[in-house]
Design a protein around this nucleic acid. Structure first.
Length: 267
DNA sequence: TGAATTGTTATCGT
DNA sequence: AACGATAACAATTC
């Protein structure tokens, strides 16, 4: 579930606790989610200091000193919790970093789809990711060029992390609604105005998501308020906030997709 | 009980 | 060959 705004929120919460700390030890209870391999990753993380915690797309990035990076992808159900000395650990703890302070950072992941990767080279490890939608370098002109170079339906294209990094199902549906664009619109057939609307919609919905600490729809990601500001996602049958037409749920590229048929047209 | 959930990868077709 | 579409897959919750 965690998409760009959720991962950004997690990074901001983690940073003040983790930055400056040294990793004393690392233990995994599900080694297959540790890359490039448990022994290699463990050796590379142990006794290194966390310089900074940031985000690239949906990846959480820890910059280590003197060298190296930890990249955590939460996938569907990954989340971080701090171990409490006088309380039992939460369920589904898959990995534990123990810090020089003795504090334990727990990686919990019910579905075990998350990934913990150590990499020497950040650029190489993130080479397949598309641009950051909130970067100042990501202009409407840039998006227009990218869209025109492809001939694909907007929804699956926006979900493609190698096209643009960070959008998932929720924010893609919300961005398309705000842009007034149907998810099946072909990327190379947008008018210049539609490109501008889409660029604006993507950035504003992500910024709004961050402002509200992300979207909390179930037990997987707590502490967000963005679910109160969603206009189409998960609102099947409820009235469109603009025109009151009931929101419809369709399936596009094997993904649940929520639209207002009146407000969202191919153009 | 099986339907739903999502990003990534492998595979198929054009 | 390159690109787009599609299926399979990871594992669990309700």
């Amino acid at each position: 579930m965690p998409e760009l705004p959720e991962v950004e929120t997690i990074a901001r919460r983690l940073a003040p606790e983790l930055e400056g700390r040294r990793i004393h030890s690392f233990v995994s209870h599900w080694p297959r989610q540790v890359l490039p391999g448990l022994t290699q990753a463990t050796r590379a993380m142990t006794d290194r200091r966390v310089l900074s915690v940031s985000r690239r797309g949906k990846l959480l990035v820890w910059t280590l000193a003197p060298a190296g990076f930890v990249l955590v992808h939460l996938r569907m159900s990954g989340r971080f919790e701090w171990g409490e000395p006088d309380r039992a650990d939460p369920p589904h703890v898959r990995a534990v970093w123990t810090l020089d302070t003795g504090r334990r950072l727990l990686f919990c992941d019910a579905r075990k789809f998350g990934r913990i990767r150590y990499a020497d080279d950040l650029a190489q490890a993130t080479a397949q990711l598309g641009p950051e939608p909130l970067d100042s370098a990501f202009t409407s002109q840039h998006l227009g060029d990218m869209l025109a170079a492809r001939a694909r339906h907007l929804k699956p294209l926006l979900l493609d992390q190698s096209f643009l990094a960070g959008l998932g199902n929720i924010y893609t549906d919300e961005a398309l609604f705000r842009a007034g664009l149907h998810p099946l619109t072909r990327s190379d057939q947008l008018s210049p105005d539609a490109v501008r609307r889409l660029h604006r919609a993507i950035r504003s919905v992500l910024r709004t998501g961050i402002q509200h600490n992300g979207t909390s729809l179930d037990w997987i990601y707590p502490g967000g308020q963005m679910q109160d500001f969603l206009r189409v996602y998960g609102r099947t049958g409820q009235p469109c906030p603009v025109c009151a037409t009931p929101i419809r749920r369709l399936v596009v590229g094997q993904r649940a997709t929520h639209i207002c048929e009146h407000c969202q047209i191919a153009r």
